[in-house]
């Protein structure tokens, strides 16, 4: 019968139309901007810089190593290294970026800067409504706009941030242990120097005696 196919198709459309009143499967539309889709954890948009603590300037993890600047495929990152140093996330004295700009009109959200960063300092943000009136300066993000707290990072990417935090805790513990060991070694060295000075003549004698023994084991 001519028209059977069309009728079959119309039945399907009717099923979808009526179904959209009852089934979430058939009505997937969301009324943006009043409603928003739930944030997916892995989502990425543009990069931001993570800082620890409360002071964005002081706690910035970035050490201005400029690896991301070199590896960025569309070359949208611009970094200027500082002249002086400040302690980084693990307490080591490091340079920091005097300028850190990202041109998000050029950035293509590929995440390669995040992958190459050895200091876990640049991460991907999830903010997407970034429209601006000024297409040049408005889309060039400076260090102050890019710096966001570790707490914020923890809220947008909890699993990833927890792993990074654990890694940093380990590093800090190691650094603390190193400082402690260094202090102890210094004390021990001082004590040893005192005793060494006393028994200097005896040790030189012992050394000369020890040598033939080593040779004799052959």
């Amino acid at each position: 019968m001519v028209g059977k196919g069309i009728i079959k198709g119309m039945v399907e459309t009717a099923r979808n139309f009526l179904g959209s009143y009852v089934s979430k499967q058939r009505l997937t539309t969301i009324q943006y901007p009043e409603e928003r889709a739930p944030q997916i954890e892995a989502a990425r948009n543009f990069p931001f810089l993570v800082f620890d603590g409360t002071d964005a300037e002081q706690g910035l993890r970035c050490v201005a190593c400029q690896i991301c600047e070199k590896e960025c495929p569309p070359k949208c990152i611009f970094i200027e290294k500082s002249k002086d140093k400040k302690p980084d996330a693990t307490g080591k004295m490091q340079f920091y970026p005097a300028t850190f700009n990202i041109d998000i009109s050029v950035c293509m959200s590929c995440q390669i800067c995040v992958e190459v960063c050895p200091f876990d300092s640049i991460k991907m943000d999830v903010v997407y409504d970034l429209s601006n009136n000024d297409r040049f300066a408005g889309l060039l993000l400076h260090k102050q706009q890019l710096a966001k707290s570790n707490e914020y990072y923890n809220t947008i990417h909890p699993t990833e941030a927890a792993a990074v935090d654990a890694h940093f805790a380990e590093e800090r513990a190691k650094a603390a242990a190193r400082v402690k060991a260094a202090a102890e070694a210094k004390l021990a060295a001082e004590a040893k120097a005192a005793t060494d000075a006393k028994a200097k003549s005896e040790t030189t004698l012992a050394d000369t005696q020890a040598q033939p023994v080593g040779g004799g084991t052959r």
Binding site: K75, I102, D103, S105, V106, F136
Partner: peptide, 9 residues
């Protein structure tokens, strides 16, 4: 050119 972050550009 758009005046981007990069010095050369």
């Amino acid at each position: 050119y758009e005046p981007t972050a990069h010095d050369a550009v």
